Structure formats: structure tokens, C-alpha cells
Amino acid sequence: MPEESDRRESESPSVRGVYGISVAAELSGFGVAALRLYEEYGLITPGRTGGGTRRYSDFDLTRLRRIAELIDAGVNLVGIGRVLDLEHRTGELERDNLRLEADNAQLRAEQDPAAEPVREPADPAVPAPETTRRGRRRRPAARGRTGSGDGPARERTGGDHH
């Protein structure tokens, strides 16, 4: 299949398998048997040549470094598989969220071109202010008060109320 080999050659070196198993073992610090075991558990999936020889990429080596970190933290191989899967899915969700935020901003701009978007530097330690549909900030709720404005909210317990 010349199309597939052309596609592989056009891929970046970070995802194209270029290292044999012995080189990958040396670069990763794992033995050849460990690399085969990690593949068996689905932790890594090296590319294969037409003859079936494993070819590891820079991406695979980065993943092996992450596997080593998790092993050092005491996580077993099944747990490592779950952690890696969750990290991958989280990354996809973060990318989707960024795309959706950009789409929403574009739609808001198209709906109300006169309104200027409020752009403030994002500080991860400070939660972003809530906004209404028109992009106006919502007034923050009073802390320590119930929604009815009766005064401070009181914690209810199962004991006597005085």
C-alpha cells in the first residue's frame, strides 16, 4: 500500500515510529520485555513495519516516561492504563471546550456587533465572573445569606434548636 507508507513518511517524527525496540528500551530505561508487556496491556501501541517489526515514536517515548512516573508513584499497570486514558480524554475535552468557547464568542459577536467583549486577564486562582446571555456580569450573590434575604444562613443539625 503506497498510500499508507506515504502517509507515514509525511507524519511528524513525534508520531511516526522510527526507533526499534532495543533503541526504545535504551532510551526509555525499560527492558525489552517490559515494553512488550506494556504493549500487551495497551499502554503503548508502537507502529509496525510491513514485516511486523515494532517501531516506537517520540510520542511513545514520552508516554513511557509518563508510565515510569506512575510506576514510581505506586500505580499498577491497570491503574496506569486508566490514568493515561483519563488524561487523554481530559485533553480532548479541554480542546473541545476551547473550540466551543471560541465559537460562542464568535456567535455573540455576530448577534450583537455593537457590544464589545469584556476581556480581562485570566487568573486561574480567581474564578471568572458569571455573565448573562448578553455578556453582562451578574451581580455576585451575598455571602452568608439565604436566597430570601432573611439574614445569615444557618446550618441545620439533627439536635435541639434554641
Rank of each mutant, 00 (worst) to 15 (best):
P2G: 12
S5G: 00
R7T: 11
R8D: 13
E9I: 10
S10F: 04
E11N: 10
E11F: 02
S12M: 11
S12G: 12
P13V: 06
S14A: 08
S14Y: 10
G17W: 11
G17I: 06
Y19H: 15
G20N: 09
I21S: 07
V23H: 12
A24G: 02
A25Q: 04
L27Q: 03
L27K: 14
L27P: 03
S28Y: 08
F30K: 01
G31C: 01
G31L: 02
A34S: 15
R36K: 14
L37R: 08
E40W: 04
E40H: 13
Y41E: 05
Y41L: 06
Y41N: 04
L43R: 00
P46L: 00
G51F: 05
G51P: 04
T53F: 13
T53S: 07
R54Q: 03
R54S: 02
R55E: 13
R55G: 07
Y56F: 15
Y56Q: 06
S57L: 04
D58R: 12
F59M: 06
D60H: 14
D60I: 01
T62A: 07
R63W: 05
L64R: 04
R65Q: 15
R66I: 01
I71M: 10
I71C: 07
I71N: 00
D72R: 15
A73Y: 12
G74H: 12
V75K: 13
N76K: 09
L77W: 00
L77A: 02
V78Q: 10
G79W: 14
I80V: 15
I80E: 01
I80T: 07
G81R: 05
R82T: 05
V83S: 01
D85F: 03
E87N: 13
H88K: 10
R89V: 04
L93T: 11
L93G: 00
R99N: 14
L100C: 05
E101W: 04
A102R: 15
D103L: 10
A105T: 13
A105C: 11
L107W: 06
L107N: 08
L107M: 10
A109P: 05
D112G: 11
D112Q: 14
D112P: 00
A114H: 05
A114I: 02
A114E: 15
P117C: 04
V118S: 14
E120Q: 13
E120V: 12
P121K: 09
P121N: 00
A122G: 09
D123E: 13
P124N: 02
E130N: 00
E130H: 06
T131P: 09
R134G: 00
R134S: 01
G135R: 01
R139V: 11
A142S: 08
G144K: 03
R145Y: 14
S148T: 13
D150R: 13
G151I: 09
G151A: 03
P152N: 03
E155G: 10
T157E: 11
T157N: 09
G158R: 15
G159R: 08
D160C: 01
D160P: 15
D160S: 12
D160M: 06
H161P: 13
